[in-house]
């Protein structure tokens, strides 16, 4: 067993080295002066605000869909459930670029015209960024919540009902609090993917400077225009900011878990 442990540890160390070497190559490519210059630039500040705003909105909409979907899929058995679950997984298996291409075609046709008539435009607009992030992250958010919902015994629901709670009260006061960990994990996973989303965003919302410019799009535009300093320093700042937010959110969550 000790020998097996040692071999497993070697794999762990090798993988950590691979990750750290990749990330540190980015950090070594820039200096504090370039970082500060980028951080103060209008374009970076736009992409920072825009990324945080779109990822938060898409995460919220995703959560709104994921909780009821996860509840239905975890608590009920019905004909065609497996097929529906497979359909739910399509955005996970499909490359985001292909997924974005599909919606580019969809919104470029009659469906897009219908939405435009009521003033909603997905293609090449900030709304398209939110939609691209939403469609990519929802299966991840939903799957995390579904797993934790399915682990909550149906008997807890029954005991709540026998204590005089309505079905909705049982959901609000028993299921959601018991699923808190899974929901949090789903949110973290979803947000991380939303902030890093590139392929689907590029296809649906395009790469327009100061309009649909999320962090990844900013990096892409930097490379495309030959401004490597801006691209690399944006990447570095994106890593630092994402980590800071994750640590703060995780810390706040763990302080709130009291049982």
């Amino acid at each position: 067993m000790r020998k097996f442990d040692s071999i497993a540890q070697i794999f762990l160390i090798v993988f950590v080295i691979i990750v750290v070497s990749g990330v540190s190559s980015l950090f070594l490519r820039v200096n504090p002066y370039i970082l500060l210059k980028t951080f103060k630039s209008k374009e970076f500040l736009f992409s920072l605000k825009f990324s945080l705003l779109t990822s938060s909105i898409s995460l919220l909409i995703s959560l709104l869909f994921s909780i009821p979907i996860a509840y239905v899929l975890s608590k009920n058995d019905f004909l065609g459930k497996e097929i529906i679950k497979d359909i739910m997984d399509i955005p996970i298996f499909l490359p985001p670029l292909v997924l974005g291409l599909a919606y580019l075609i969809l919104f470029g046709g009659k469906v897009g015209s219908l939405f435009e008539k009521i003033g909603i435009q997905f293609l090449f607009s900030p709304l398209g960024v939110v939609f691209a992030q939403f469609i990519v992250i929802t299966p991840y958010v939903e799957r995390n919540i579904e797993v934790v919902f399915s682990k909550i015994s149906k008997r807890y629901e029954f005991i709540g009902k026998s204590m005089g709670l309505s079905d909705f009260e049982v959901f609000k006061k028993i299921i959601i609090p018991l699923a808190k960990d899974g929901i949090f994990t789903g949110l973290i996973t979803g947000w991380s993917r939303a902030i890093a989303e590139f392929g689907a965003t590029l296809m649906i919302a395009g790469a327009t400077k100061m309009r649909t410019e999320t962090f990844p799009i900013a990096i892409f535009l930097g490379i495309a225009s030959g401004d490597m300093d801006f691209a690399v320093s944006t990447g570095v700042l994106m890593i630092i900011i994402s980590f800071l937010i994750l640590f703060m959110v995780r810390g706040a969550f763990e302080r709130n878990v009291s049982y």
Partner: peptide, 12 residues
Amino acid sequence: GYVPQDYLLLPH
């Protein structure tokens, strides 16, 4: 009123 075998007190 129902008292289950494993009591089912809500852990949170």
